[in-house]
Amino acid sequence: MSAPAYDWLTLEPDEEIVWSGEPELLGYVWVFVVGVVLIPLFGLGFVIIASAYLTVKNTAYVITTDSVFKKTGVLSRQITDIGHENIQDTGYRQSFVGRHYDFGTVQVSTAGGSGVEMSLDYVADPLAVQSQLDSVATKKAPADESTDRNGRNPVRIDGAALDELVEEMQATRKALESIERRLKDE
């Protein structure tokens, strides 16, 4: 995909841009409506409209073969990135207007994080963006199928082994209760 050059983005030699975008202006329609309503109030509406427009124009999202990036900031600049190996889960949501005009928010959660760590707000075709992100993040998963995306080795127990484990735990509990009773009696 041919993407615009980003002066704020430094890529590794083998890293490529897979997708890039910015928020859809239509996603901020409610801000513009409020701004128009507040224009008679000392021109406050102009400030609200200008602020929303500058926010949209100074926000960029980039998905590369290694990470997902979000750049924000009008007067200052903040760049957030999450490596694909750290992505635990992705999702997307769309409002009623977003479903009608096909824009929404792609959400990225990381292992060890609490909830959504990054959101790509008001992107066009959020399902396609989420699918693309999942596709490149999955390619970064470890080659060994016995580990998950985060390098952990999940334990798999079949039904018979689970029953045996439960029996052993029950026997251990009975033994500990017996020891506890003896200690109380002494």
Score class of each variant (00 low, 15 high):
110 T>A: 11
108 V>Y: 03
49 I>A: 05
111 A>Q: 07
133 L>V: 09
39 I>D: 00
49 I>H: 04
79 I>T: 14
138 T>G: 15
110 T>P: 00
93 R>T: 11
117 E>H: 03
131 S>Q: 11
112 G>H: 10
15 E>G: 05
111 A>T: 03
59 T>C: 09
55 T>F: 08
119 S>L: 06
29 V>A: 11
23 P>V: 12
60 A>E: 04
72 T>W: 01
91 G>F: 05
145 E>T: 15
88 Q>R: 15
36 V>S: 01
104 G>F: 02
131 S>F: 03
139 K>D: 12
100 H>L: 13
27 G>T: 04
148 D>C: 08
27 G>L: 07
135 S>M: 02
100 H>C: 01
139 K>P: 02
63 I>T: 11
96 F>T: 13
94 Q>R: 13
105 T>P: 00
131 S>P: 02
148 D>N: 14
153 N>L: 12
29 V>M: 13
86 N>A: 14
106 V>A: 09
151 G>L: 09
96 F>N: 10
33 V>L: 09
29 V>P: 00
59 T>L: 12
39 I>K: 06
145 E>I: 15
111 A>Y: 06
15 E>Y: 06
19 W>L: 09
41 L>D: 10
143 A>P: 03
82 I>V: 14
41 L>M: 13
94 Q>I: 09
138 T>D: 11
118 M>R: 08
143 A>G: 01
72 T>H: 03
106 V>S: 03
89 D>N: 15
35 G>F: 07
71 K>V: 09
71 K>A: 06
154 P>T: 10
103 F>S: 00
95 S>G: 12
105 T>N: 12
151 G>A: 11
128 A>S: 15
104 G>I: 04
142 P>K: 11
136 V>Q: 13
47 V>Q: 07
100 H>I: 08
97 V>C: 01
26 L>H: 03
17 I>W: 08
55 T>S: 13
53 Y>S: 07
42 F>D: 02
142 P>C: 09
114 S>Y: 06
67 S>T: 13
123 V>L: 05
98 G>I: 02
105 T>C: 03
99 R>G: 09
111 A>N: 05
125 D>V: 06
134 D>M: 11
18 V>D: 07
123 V>W: 02
101 Y>L: 14
83 G>T: 05
59 T>H: 06
93 R>L: 10
101 Y>W: 15
136 V>N: 08
142 P>V: 09
115 G>H: 08
28 Y>D: 03
101 Y>C: 03
102 D>Q: 14
23 P>T: 01
132 Q>W: 02
109 S>P: 00
121 D>M: 11
98 G>Y: 11
86 N>D: 13
132 Q>I: 12
136 V>A: 12
90 T>S: 10
58 N>Q: 10
104 G>Q: 08
128 A>T: 14
18 V>I: 13
15 E>N: 00
67 S>F: 10
57 K>V: 14
77 R>T: 15
85 E>A: 08
38 L>I: 02
